[in-house]
Amino acid sequence: MEINGVEIEDTFAEAFGIQVSRVLVTAATKKFAKIAATEATGYATSVIGCPAEAGIDCYVPPEETPDGRPGYMIMICNMSKKNLDHELLERVGMCLLTAATTAAFNALDDADETLKTGQKLKFFGDGFEKELDIDGRKIWSIPIMSGDFLVEAELGIKAGVAGGNFFIMGDSPSSALIAAEAAVDAIGAIEGAITPFPGGVVASGSKVGSNKYKFLGASTNEKMCVTLKNEVEGSEIPADVNGVYEIVIDGVNEEVVKEAMKVGIEAAVKVPGVLKISAGNFGGNLGAFKFNLHDLF
Rank of each mutant, 00 (worst) to 15 (best):
E246Q: 15
I247M: 11
I247Q: 03
V248A: 12
V248Q: 12
V248F: 14
V248S: 13
V248P: 01
I249E: 01
I249Q: 00
I249N: 01
I249C: 09
I249W: 03
I249M: 07
D250R: 08
D250S: 14
G251S: 13
G251T: 12
G251K: 13
G251I: 10
V252D: 00
V252R: 09
N253Y: 07
N253H: 11
N253M: 09
N253P: 11
E254T: 13
E254L: 12
E255G: 15
E255Y: 06
E255L: 09
E255W: 08
E255I: 05
E255R: 12
V256P: 02
V256C: 10
V257A: 13
V257T: 10
V257I: 13
K258H: 03
K258T: 00
K258W: 06
K258G: 03
K258L: 05
K258V: 05
K258M: 08
K258C: 07
E259W: 06
E259F: 07
A260Y: 02
A260K: 04
A260N: 02
A260Q: 03
A260I: 08
M261A: 02
M261E: 00
K262Q: 08
K262T: 06
K262S: 12
K262W: 07
K262A: 13
V263P: 02
V263G: 01
V263L: 06
V263Q: 02
V263N: 00
V263M: 01
G264N: 00
G264K: 05
G264F: 04
I265M: 14
I265A: 06
I265V: 09
I265L: 10
I265C: 04
I265N: 05
I265S: 01
E266W: 04
E266M: 14
E266F: 11
E266Y: 13
E266K: 15
E266G: 05
A267L: 10
A267F: 09
A267Q: 07
A267G: 09
A267N: 01
A268I: 11
A268G: 09
A268E: 03
A268T: 10
V269C: 04
V269S: 06
K270W: 01
K270D: 00
K270M: 11
V271E: 00
V271F: 10
P272K: 13
P272S: 10
G273T: 07
G273S: 11
G273I: 11
V274D: 01
V274A: 09
V274I: 15
L275C: 14
L275F: 10
L275K: 15
L275Q: 14
K276S: 01
K276P: 02
K276I: 05
K276E: 02
K276F: 07
K276Q: 06
K276N: 04
I277T: 08
I277W: 02
I277F: 06
S278K: 13
S278G: 14
S278D: 02
S278H: 02
S278F: 07
A279N: 01
G280L: 10
G280V: 11
G280P: 08
G280I: 06
N281C: 11
N281L: 12
N281W: 09
N281D: 11
F282V: 08
F282N: 15
F282A: 15
F282S: 14
G283D: 04
G283I: 11
G283S: 06
G284A: 04
G284E: 02
G284M: 00
G284N: 03
G284W: 06
N285E: 12
N285T: 15
N285C: 10
